[in-house]
Design a protein around this nucleic acid. Structure first.
Length: 672
DNA sequence: GCCCTTGCAACAGTTTGAGTCGAT
DNA sequence: ATCGACTCAAACTGTTGCAAGGGC
């Protein structure tokens, strides 16, 4: 099956989309992750929550989702309404998205997409020319080789009949990153193809915002002999399936390009050719497979148990393990295959396979993290890595929700887009914090001998745009001035935290909340540990429910690209309209602090942690942190580094003005 | 031999989930 | 019988130091 470049029809759309982004810095990706966008995303979600949760009390919500720890979601599924009509609505309720995403007019998107990307995402250094993944300048070399699940049997895919687990199509390169993004644009979907069901399934990446955060730095995934879970993991929502039909849903991981990669000078650069003679399982079938469309549409489909390994000969848990090679770039794909009730493929009805590719889920397999930005993101977002968070005991005195970090057990679904972005009170504090963070990331062993590259982005690590833009990594940046008492406080309220989280670094906007006197609301304590279904009251969950992406469909392969059709007028509305309702609506306990006195102290405005001292004391905490962080000593001094975050922080209103209009959803549709 | 890259395993900290126990 | 608190082993995380291998 041949993929075609989009030359007409879609191409216009695609080109428009592409034209809205600078092609050299990968900002087309970043745009989607822009805080404002996320914020509006949240807004939409919150609105939906507010709207759709009517009739569902917090308690009932909790009852419906008493346990969210199982990746398969059996518990939730069992208790969710079986009403098929409500499937979509329910799901959207909980994922916080709105039906709008499903009614977006694709034709309306490109225009709005193309606003101010460069100013919003000035990250040229890290993902510059040496980073092909972010280059969209050249036509994809691999489109022709893009593995296409044909209309025929897919089982061969599961049997590893070829070294890569694919029977045909040569070496299965995924479409190259940048191309995928425009990409959608470049792939033309032929609805006339036999067996395909154009537009049937709609898939979106639930935790897309989180993926994007990693992707901006070039996601790395640790692979170990015993297998390492992915983080972020893959989590999808699907709609448009036949509720009564049966489907197998699985993920495979294919090479994203033919290169061997190495981390050099703070950047990932191609280095030689990929080893294509690798055997081993590359497919992970969702444990619920096969199951009905209603089942799959009922909740997120998470692949949190999927493990990555480099152990080709491993015999244990091969079903759970995907064998990869270190320093190779991979692209996970989601496959939805309509099957018979017993799970067997109906060979008489070919073309029941739909493949979805999310470029932002590309990653490079490593045995040790190379990019400290990635490391920090992992630490910040992965609850299992809490122990490595600086000042965790003091800064993160609040419930996890403060951190907007999911607990894995809450559910794989609870993987959220965390990293509360708390506004800085001002440039002084900001600089202090940034500086603190910068120091914290120095590693004593760095600079000599092995591991330099592994640990040090030489040219841009310390205050690279990515890094400074990513306040999540800097604990101190979670502080801001509490207008109520003019103290430097830790943003612990769900609202602030959530807003901050989904503003994804736009501390300025959050600060504007504080400045505007937006009441901080009590943190729904259940968000800490009892988040239902991963949609939990946790405001951070907003980030989980990344909007869908539009996809073009070439053959059975879907490609996705950002769209933007929903605009909000500004964060002020967001604040006014939702500030007093979101947390309550999201809280299974009605957002009452009294519901769980135990957690009360951990929410809302909390006392200034002792760690605040570190802000003023260069040797308290910071130095200690410095021992743990690997940062290039040659990194640019903080004060001399231009921080995109800064620019975003300082003129909040300006940012709002510039960014809000770009807010939109990225619906993930197969083209029809 | 030195430098560098890469991989491995031990380690400590955290979360999870099952099991137990006592109170209601 | 139910619920909540508690304990503890297992699982999971990134960190760290070291070793293996290749190139010079």
């Amino acid at each position: 099956m041949q993929l075609e470049n989009c030359t007409s029809g879609l191409s216009k759309k695609c080109l428009n989309v592409g034209s809205g982004y600078p092609s050299s810095d990968g900002s087309e990706l970043s745009l989607q992750d822009h805080p404002i966008i996320s914020a509006n995303d949240n807004l939409e979600r919150s609105s939906t929550l507010k709207k759709n949760s009517r009739g569902m009390t917090n308690q009932s919500e909790a009852d419906n989702f008493p346990d969210s720890k199982d990746a398969s979601g059996d518990v939730q599924r069992g208790k969710l309404s079986p009403d098929l009509h409500g499937v979509s609505e329910i799901r959207h309720n909980f994922d916080g998205s709105t039906g709008e995403r499903y009614t977006l007019s694709q034709s309306s998107q490109p225009q709005s997409v193309s606003a101010t990307p460069s100013t919003m995402f000035p990250y040229p250094s890290q993902h510059g020319p040496t980073h092909p993944a972010f280059s969209i300048g050249s036509p994809s070399h691999y489109l022709a080789h893009h593995p296409v699940i044909t209309n025929g049997a897919y089982n061969s895919l599961l049997t590893n009949s070829s070294p890569q687990g694919y029977p045909t199509a040569g070496y299965p390169y995924a479409q190259q990153y940048g191309h995928t993004y425009q990409g959608g644009a470049f792939y033309q979907f032929s609805s006339a193809q036999a067996g395909l069901l154009p537009g049937k399934a709609q898939v979106y990446l639930c935790n897309r915002a989180l993926w994007l955060k990693f992707h901006r730095h070039q996601t790395e995934m640790i692979i170990t002999k015993q297998g390492r879970r992915m983080f972020p993991f893959l989590s999808f929502n699907i709609s448009g399936l036949d509720p009564t039909a049966h489907y197998n849903i699985f993920v495979d991981v294919i090479l994203a390009d033919p290169n061997h990669w190495r981390f050099q000078g703070g950047k990932w650069v191609p280095c030689g050719k990929a080893d294509t003679n690798v055997t081993g399982n590359r497919v992970y079938m969702h444990p619920d497979s096969p199951n009905t469309g209603a089942h799959w549409m009922r909740q997120e489909i998470s692949f949190g148990k999927l493990k990555l390994t480099n152990n080709k000969g491993g015999s244990n848990n091969t079903g759970q393990m995907v064998v990869l090679q270190s320093l190779h770039k991979y692209q996970p794909r989601l496959h939805v295959v309509e099957v018979n009730e017993d799970g067997t493929e109906d060979s008489s009805q070919p073309g029941r396979v739909q493949t979805f590719t999310f470029p932002e889920t590309q990653f490079i397999a490593v045995t040790a993290y190379q990019n400290t930005d990635i490391t920090q993101l992992k630490i910040d977002h992965n609850p299992f890595a809490k122990g490595f968070r600086d000042n965790y005991d003091t800064v993160y005195t609040g419930c996890d929700i403060d951190r907007l970090t999911p607990s894995p057990g809450d559910s794989p679904r609870s993987q959220i887009m965390p990293g509360a972005r708390y506004a800085m009170a001002g440039s002084f504090l900001q600089d202090q914090f940034v500086s603190s963070y910068a120091k914290s990331r120095f590693h004593p062993g760095v600079g000599t001998g092995p591991g330099t590259d592994r640990s040090v982005p030489l040219s841009n690590s310390l205050l690279s745009p990515q890094q400074t833009e990513e306040p999540t990594v800097a604990s101190p940046q979670r502080w801001f001035v509490n207008p109520a008492n003019n103290r430097l406080d830790f943003a612990a309220s769900p609202y602030d935290a959530a807003a901050a989280a989904d503003f994804a670094g736009n501390a300025a906007t959050l600060l504007s909340y504080a400045a505007a006197g937006v009441k901080t609301l009590p943190l729904p304590t259940t968000g800490c540990s009892n988040r239902p279904l991963g949609y939990y009251a946790d405001p951070s969950g907003w980030g989980t429910h990344t909007p869908p992406q539009y996809c073009s469909k070439s053959s059975s392969v879907l490609s996705c690209w950002p769209t933007n059709s929903v605009s909000r007028t500004g964060t002020s509305n967001y604040l006014v309209d939702n500030a007093d309702t979101i947390p309550t609506e999201r809280s299974p306990i009605g957002g009452s602090n009294e519901a769980k006195p135990k957690d009360l102290s951990e929410s809302s405005w909390i006392e200034t942690p002792s760690s605040i001292k570190s802000i003023d004391s260069s040797d308290s905490g910071i130095f200690e942190q410095a021992k743990r962080r690997r940062i290039s000593p040659s990194a640019t001094p903080v004060s001399e580094t231009v921080s995109p975050l800064k620019s975003e922080i300082l003129p909040p209103r300006e940012c709002e003005k510039n960014c809000v209009k770009d807010i939109g959803y990225y619906s993930f549709y197969p083209h029809s």
